[in-house]
Design a protein around this nucleic acid. Sequence first.
DNA 1: CTTCGATCCTGGTAGC
DNA 2: TGCTACCAGGATCGAA
Length: 290
Amino acid sequence: MPELPEVEVVRRGLERWISGRRIREVEVLHPRAVRRHLAGGEDFAAALAGHRVGVPHRRGKYLWIPLTDGLSVLAHLGMSGQLLVQPGDAPDERHLRVRIRFEDAVSPSDTELRFVDQRTFGGLSLHPSVPLDPDGLPDVIAHIARDPLDPAFDDEAFHQALRRRRTTVKRALLDQSLVSGVGNIYADEALWRSRLHYERPTATLTRPRTSELLGHVREVMRAALDVGGTSFDSLYVNVNGESGYFDRALDAYGREGEPCARCGTAIRRNPWMNRSSHYCPRCQRPPRLT
DNA sequence: CTTCGATCCTGGTAGC
DNA sequence: TGCTACCAGGATCGAA
C-alpha cells in the first residue's frame, strides 16, 4: 500500500521522466479514476491537452503536477494505484485507467504516462492552487497536514494537538489532518519502535514520548525511502508500494506469529477499525482501562 | 466542534 | 471443482 515513501519514489520518478514535457492527448479508460474531477472524464482530458508539465510536488500521500496556469493535476494512488512511465507500444495493463501521451513522443516506443489501479480507490483530477501558495498546493487538499519529512512540519504543534485530542495514538497517526503520509504499515512500525500500544490515549503522551514517536516515524520512512529510492532511475516509474524489497525490513506489520525482534514474543494481529494492528504484546503494553 | 463507524472497490485465498 | 466469505485499507461522509 503506497504511503509516503512509496509516493515520494513515484514523485522522483515523475520528475526524472515527465517534467517539462508537453501533453498531447489524454485517454480516460475508466470514469471512476477521474471521479474527483467533477466536470467529468472528457473535460479532464480536454483540459490537460497542450499543457506543459512542471516539477511534481508531494504532501503526505498526495502528489500533484503543476501545469502552466495555476492548475495542477492531483494524483492519489489509493491502495493499488500506480503511475507508470511505459513505452507507448507496451501492451496495456489489465487495470489501465488513464493514459497520457506527450508531444515529444514520435516513435511508438517513446514513453507515455499511465495510471493503473486495480481497486480504483485512487484517481486523478485537476484543481486550482491555493492562492499564493509557493508549491501550488491544490485547493482540495488544503486540509491535509504537512508530513513528518517536511522541514516545515511543526513538532511542538503536533504534540499540543495530541494533548488536546481525546483519541488514541494510532488513530491520530492515521489522521491526515494532524500528520500526513502515515498509513497502517508505517503506523504499526513506528509504534513498535516506540514501544507504544496502538490504543494509548494521545492525551497521556509526554513531550519526549511524542518526540520519540515522530523520530521513529521519520526513521522508518527514511529507511523505506532509501531502499525504494534506489530503483527509480530505470525506465519504469514502477512503484505501487507492494515493494517486495522493503517488507523484509518490517518488524511488526504482517509479522503475526513471528518473534518480536527485541524480545522474541510472538507478534500479534488484532482487528482494529476494519483493518489490523500488529504489535508485540510484551514490548507494547495496552493502556490501563480507565 | 470532535469522534467514530460505514462505505467505496476487486483479486487472492481460505474454507466447505 | 465451484461456490461463498473474507481480507487488504485511504479518504470521505454523515450520525451522534
